[in-house]
Amino acid sequence: MNAKQPLIKLESLCRHFNSNGLVTRAIHNLDLEIYPGEYVSISGPSGCGKSTLLSILGLLDGATKGNYYLKQHKVEHFDLYQKAALRNKEVGFVFQAFNLIGDMTVFENVELPLTYSNVKKNNRKQRVMEILDQVNMAHRKDHFPAQLSGGQQQRVAVARGMIINPSILLADEPTGNLDSANGEEIMDLLDQLNQQGTTICMVTHDARFAQRATRTIKLLDGQLLQ
């Protein structure tokens, strides 16, 4: 991919919700470009459209109108299967609530996206151990989420998000359920991943963490503040 071309491009993007005739403009006429290797933070008050925007970027939700290009794929007309295939190949997620599967080990949780991608078992094992070692969780590979601290669970969640070598890692309030010390550790890990070339787009309400990004975007009422 040409480095001068955006990894993500939004043109006049809108996401409106209609409930009993009342229209809520969660995202309205938003233009945005994110380039390979960037670390972008999205901040703003509660209800400003941050999580809606991240859901659209991650192909979990669709726009009401406007254009969305991911690696030059015009995705707004993709069907559910095409979106899922593109998401599984290009997008990694880290959620506030970790979203680990309780009856699966650390190894199995991180391995799961590779299973969906039909990666061979021997290749899966090598890749999982590499990424667990990178986030300092290889020694906990046989533990279950309930046996881990919140910070450890989020490290596993980051590993799971990175396991497919995604084009972009989307992090939705990744420190929201952590104390300050564990939050700093997770932010240090995201900094490290970005320095290694990972493109990151993060939603956060914490101004300290937002300032760690190389570019900060502020939303208000679904629109960018210049």
Results as ranks from 00 to 15, higher is better:
L60M: 13
N29L: 12
E111I: 11
G44L: 06
I200W: 00
N122V: 11
K89C: 03
M162P: 00
R127P: 02
L7A: 04
S51A: 12
I164W: 00
H139Q: 11
N165K: 08
H16T: 12
V158D: 00
A210L: 07
V23E: 15
A63Q: 07
L57S: 03
K65Y: 08
I34Y: 12
V135C: 06
L10I: 11
A213E: 06
F93N: 03
Q153L: 05
L7K: 01
A26V: 13
H205W: 10
T198G: 01
F93A: 06
V135S: 05
N18F: 14
N29K: 14
L148D: 07
I186V: 14
T204F: 01
K65L: 10
G102L: 12
K89D: 09
G62D: 08
Q195D: 08
A138N: 10
M129P: 02
V203H: 01
M137L: 09
C48D: 07
I217P: 04
F78A: 05
P166N: 01
P166C: 02
V91I: 15
E184H: 10
N194M: 07
A213Q: 05
D142T: 14
Q5E: 11
T115S: 13
A85Q: 09
F95N: 06
N20Y: 12
D188M: 11
L224W: 03
A171E: 00
Y81S: 14
E90T: 10
I27Q: 02
A138C: 10
G37I: 05
L80A: 14
P6D: 07
P145L: 03
A146K: 13
F144P: 01
D103A: 15
G44R: 04
E184K: 13
K121T: 14
Q196D: 09
T198K: 00
V75P: 01
A138V: 14
L148F: 09
M137R: 04
Y69K: 05
L30C: 11
A159Y: 00
K141T: 10
L193D: 02
F93K: 04
T198V: 11
V110G: 02
K50V: 09
I42Y: 03
F107G: 02
Q153Y: 04
G161Y: 00
L86Y: 02
M187K: 03
G151C: 08
R127W: 04
V203C: 09
A207G: 06
L54P: 01
S180A: 10
P174H: 04
G66S: 08
C48T: 13
F144C: 05
A159T: 04
N109Y: 07
D172K: 01
M129Q: 11
F98I: 10
A207S: 14
L32M: 15
E108T: 12
K121M: 12
E11L: 09
H77V: 09
L10E: 06
Q226H: 13
L70G: 03
L225F: 07
N194E: 09
V75E: 01
D206G: 10
K218H: 15
H16F: 15
N118E: 13
L100M: 14
D133L: 06
C48F: 06
Q195N: 13
I27V: 15
S19K: 15
K4N: 15
M1N: 04
E185Y: 05
Q152W: 03
L60W: 03
Q152L: 06
H28V: 12
R124A: 05
R215W: 10
K71E: 10
